[in-house]
Design a protein around this nucleic acid. Structure first.
Length: 568
DNA sequence: AGTTTCGGCGCC
DNA sequence: AAAGGGCGCCGAAACT
């Protein structure tokens, strides 16, 4: 009994499908069908569809109400495999994979399309990257072999399956959209920013703050122009390098308070104001385009609307439909728990084996109960902090949790030395993280702005040397250090999503939002309890699948609310 | 005039 | 107290 089929567009505008055996080879004749939705709908027994690219195929299936259980996304697999093979940067399209297989000229990847509020998802016949079924299957068979040649084939297969599942979740979320109340949003904007004036200038509150800032400086100042603000401070006898909040906030000057207030509101106005609402919300839904695996660490990205950066105050506008609820679930202290699971540090595993606050437990053991210190130390270890209190605290962390700190230190060293670094499931860090040529380029560019400071950064960077890593390689070290934790967390999160998606399959509940360690499910009120339980179960399953036998737990804080802002 | 980079800040 | 990882987005500034 075959549960795996492949699908590819045919040249006549139809679609070819074929059953596959356990070895991945065709296990029956190719069938020609007139449309993909029909081909899939008429084969409910198929549990995994092998196709070139989910974003190219699946939206059109969803548009006709057809969902699939699982898939294998050839281009996702190609990307993961190339990375694992240390061939980051080679074209990753199925066509490129085929060309490498056949020895022909390898076509470059098509450019990524830009976000566009009005854009429709591409239908697959419209993209020139399509591959006939026979070619697709040749690439697929080759990929299955390449999975077997990796360090840990089981994990690599799981990674490809998980990332493929992620593409399904993303496509379904893109279709569902996030419930969004334009009315609540407009009310918020009016409360925060005041009335808009005709002509599109600053709303009332921002105009007032501009006046206050100007009054404090004794001259007209545009608070949204950093150069203007720096100049104004200089005239007041205060030298600032930038107008970043952390640099401004401790200054003793009457302009500081209105300036900081302005920055906060300005941000909301330009990034999530009226024009955002106009561009991104239609018929009660905010529809960002989620893209699974959009970053090298495996975290998702979104295109359009800044969906992963919705300010807390704006979350008031995320409101469930009447009679429905939002189940908002946030993984507790995900990164240190992941670090415990991947490093197998006995002390950290013991702490992460409880559901209670991990930072508090760490601080009880190594920081005399100071939770904030403990949290900073853990995050400093993960991010590669190089100065400040974090360093002192890092030493305390190292004494109590030596294997955990050694794990990220090893990753950092590997990164500095240009060696490959992988997540738990095998996603691979690009060797240079895109910084190498930037630095060279930078060095050749004459920098003009400030006479007094221009030499310092460039010189400091170049003169750091003998015996030590360059600034560039240290940056790669920090990147690699963070990569193993952030990326392994992303591995786990994919399996969580996949499990949760399956639990929701028989319900009316829909996943509508995902942000690294947080998910939102929109469901009828009577399904909420089921969804809450499903999240707990999915977390446990994801932990087992990703990390194998481990005492580490991944608890969630879950809230059933009508409005996102009411969660926690 | 159109395109790319920068500065700043939102989220995790 | 100080500046470490990953992103996207906006307007202004700096390019071509």
């Amino acid at each position: 009994m075959t549960d795996r089929w492949a699908l590819a567009p045919a040249e006549d505008g139809g679609v070819d499908v074929a059953p596959l055996g356990p070895d991945g080879l065709p296990a029956g004749p190719v069938r020609r069908e007139s449309d993909p939705a029909g081909a899939v709908r008429s084969r409910p027994e198929v549990t995994r569809w092998v196709w070139r690219s989910t974003p190219d195929v699946y939206p059109r299936l969803l548009a006709t109400g057809v969902r699939v259980e699982r898939c294998y996304d050839i281009e996702v697999a190609e990307t993961l495999l190339l990375g694992h093979e240390g061939r980051y940067g080679e074209p990753r399209s199925a066509a490129a994979a085929l060309a490498r297989l056949r020895g022909g000229p390898v076509p470059p990847d098509p450019p990524q399309r830009a976000a566009d509020p009005g854009a429709q998802s591409p239908l697959f016949e419209s993209s020139g990257a399509a591959l006939p079924l026979a070619d697709l299957l040749a690439v697929y068979a080759d990929q299955l072999r390449r999975h077997e040649k990796t360090d840990a084939p089981g994990r690599m297969r799981l990674l490809t399956a998980a990332e493929s599942a992620g593409t399904l979740v993303a496509a379904e979320m893109n279709r569902a959209g996030m419930p969004w109340s334009s009315e609540v949003h407009r009310g918020l904007l009016r409360d925060l920013l005041g009335e808009r004036y005709a002509g599109g200038g600053e709303p009332r509150r921002l105009a007032e703050l501009t006046d206050e800032v100007s009054a404090a400086f004794g001259r007209r100042v545009r608070p949204d122009l950093p150069a203007d603000v720096i100049k104004a401070f200089a005239q007041a006898g205060i030298k600032v390098r930038s107008t970043r909040r952390w640099e401004i906030q401790s200054l003793d000057h009457p302009a500081v308070a209105p300036l900081l207030a302005y920055k906060k509101l300005y941000r909301i106005w330009v990034a999530h104001g009226w024009s955002w609402l106009q561009d991104w919300v239609r018929e009660g839904r905010f529809r960002p385009e989620f893209q699974a695996g959009g970053t090298v660490t495996g975290r998702w990205v979104t295109h359009g609307g800044g969906a992963l950066q919705i300010p807390k105050v704006i979350r008031r506008a995320v409101v469930a439909d009447p009679g429905w609820r939002l189940v908002v679930a946030d993984a507790d202290q995900m990164e240190p728990r992941v670090l415990a699971a991947i490093s197998r540090d006995p002390g950290l595993m013991e702490v992460a084996g409880r559901e209670s606050d991990l930072y508090q437990a760490v601080s009880d053991r190594a920081f005399s109960g100071d939770r904030e210190q403990a949290k900073l130390a853990v995050l400093g270890a993960v991010y590669g902090q190089t100065s400040g209190d974090g360093l002192k605290n890092l030493a305390a962390l190292r004494r109590r949790f030596p294997k955990a700190v050694a794990y990220v230190d090893d990753a950092a060293r590997a990164g500095e030395e240009g060696r490959l670094v992988r997540t738990w499931l095998g996603r691979t860090c690009p060797p240079a993280a895109g910084t190498g040529e930037d630095a060279a380029e930078e060095a050749g560019i004459p920098i003009g702005p400030g006479e007094d400071e221009e030499e310092a950064p460039a010189d400091g960077r170049a003169a750091w040397v003998p015996g030590h890593a360059s600034a560039d390689s240290r940056a790669r070290g920090r990147f690699a250090r963070n990569f193993v934790v952030q990326g392994s967390a992303a591995d786990w999160a994919l399996l969580l999503l996949a499990a949760l998606r399956r639990s929701c399959a028989g319900l009316r509940a829909e996943l509508v939002f995902f942000q690294h360690d947080e998910v939102i499910v929109h469901c009828p009120a009577e399904e909420a309890a089921t969804v809450v339980a499903a999240i707990r179960d999915a977390s446990a399953l994801a932990g087992r699948l990703t990390f194998g036998e481990t005492p580490v737990r991944f608890p969630f804080t879950t809230a059933v609310v009508e409005c996102y802002a009411d969660a926690k």
